[in-house]
Simulated scan of single mutants.
Amino acid sequence: MQPELKLQLMDTHAGGDVSRIVTGGIRPLPGATVRAQMEYLRDEADGLRRLLLEEPYGIPEMSVDLLVPPTDPKAVAGYIIMEVMGYPIYSGSNTMCTATAVLESGIVAKQEGWQSFMLEAPAGLVHIDAFVRDGVVEAITCGGLPSYIDTYQASIHVPDVGNVNYSVAYSGGFYALVDATSLGFALTLDEERRLSDCAYRIVEAIRAERRFSHYTLGDVGPLPFLHFMGPVEQLADNSYRSRSTTYVHPGVICRSTTGTGTSARLALMNHEGKIRPGDRLETVSLRETGFIGEFTGVRQEGPHQVVENTITGRSFVLNRADIVVNCDDPMVECAGLKHILTSAHPE
């Protein structure tokens, strides 16, 4: 008999974005770093991502995070992020969900009040501060990637949309930042489909015209993301709020405002001289969920002012389950997957 093939999962969400945390069922991956293991998964075992984000197991709006042993002794766990567009090296909402799963699964014992630990993302070490009350994880603060403005106030003509002004930030991926009000959007839930269609047209127009290069990573591919920005409201001397929404893939608008989108906003506000270190921006989604980005510092990297920041939010556990992988199911493609399952015979 063929052994039963299965994965252990913990489904979570942060701000509405669902992250499936793979907690067991995958063999150790080759690679001296989590980044190298991510590249192996991408190039040799993409079946795991496709299995959990496509029918019949998942939908493109979800994300998957595979827990792996850390390669840096400072970290308690490593994690590889998988989304419909591929393998981002960092994500704020996925980091919040992974940190919560690490606590809920007992990899890190919960302590009342604030506690700190490190995770290892493909982008490198990430500092985590977690707040626990009565055994419940109520907040996760994670270090956002250093963010900067690549392009400020460019303009492009977009078919069926018109002339669009945009800036481009890097915050773990390149983001086009677009003022929502200028295009007639109030960033409410009933606009979700129109926001997705509009963002797709803008991103495709920018992709056809230019590419972007990171100052250390080089060419990281075509522009992937667009972040619609609502008006900024000042709540107090160092506190701001803005409605926001992020487009990540044709037909996919994130349910949260995204951590990297919030980091990109901080970079833009710093570039425009509108915030100072210690200031906070709460981004509010179409579903009225929010993340809080804090501008913690700035440094000069060549021509760029690079913004250091943290992102705070909350992740909720939705489900703990075993997924049975039936390779006889005509809707299941086991190529690129079976060789990394612990329950499969070595090939």
Rank of each mutant, 00 (worst) to 15 (best):
T12N: 11
R193A: 13
V324C: 14
M85D: 14
H157K: 09
R35D: 11
A75G: 12
I107L: 15
V220Y: 00
D17P: 15
T33Y: 05
I253N: 09
F291A: 02
V68N: 09
R299A: 03
L5A: 07
E120I: 00
R241I: 05
V102G: 09
M62S: 08
I80L: 09
I140L: 15
P250Y: 01
S63P: 06
I140V: 12
I21F: 10
R280M: 11
T310K: 11
L187G: 05
T283I: 01
I156Y: 04
L66E: 10
A180G: 13
E61T: 02
L67K: 10
R35Y: 14
H249F: 14
I149H: 03
R42K: 12
S285A: 05
P60D: 08
G230R: 11
L41N: 05
S239N: 14
V137C: 05
E191I: 02
S343A: 07
G16V: 01
V332T: 08
S105R: 15
C142I: 09
A99Y: 06
V126D: 04
G78V: 08
G15Q: 11
P222K: 01
A321D: 07
F291Q: 05
N238H: 14
R314T: 14
C254V: 09
L187Q: 04
M38F: 01
N309R: 10
H157V: 05
C97G: 03
H304C: 03
K6G: 07
H304G: 04
N165E: 15
F117C: 08
P30Y: 02
G273T: 07
E288Y: 07
A186E: 15
N238S: 12
E233Q: 10
E54I: 01
G162I: 01
D197C: 04
F316Q: 15
T262R: 13
I202E: 13
T100L: 11
T98A: 14
R194T: 05
P346Q: 12
E61N: 07
G124F: 07
N309Y: 11
G162A: 03
G92R: 14
E138S: 10
D197L: 12
G313V: 10
E301Q: 09
N319T: 08
D190P: 10
R50F: 02
D329R: 04
E55H: 13
F316N: 15
L119D: 03
L268R: 09
S196V: 04
V252K: 06
L281E: 09
R35S: 12
T151C: 11
T188P: 02
E112S: 14
G143N: 12
E104R: 13
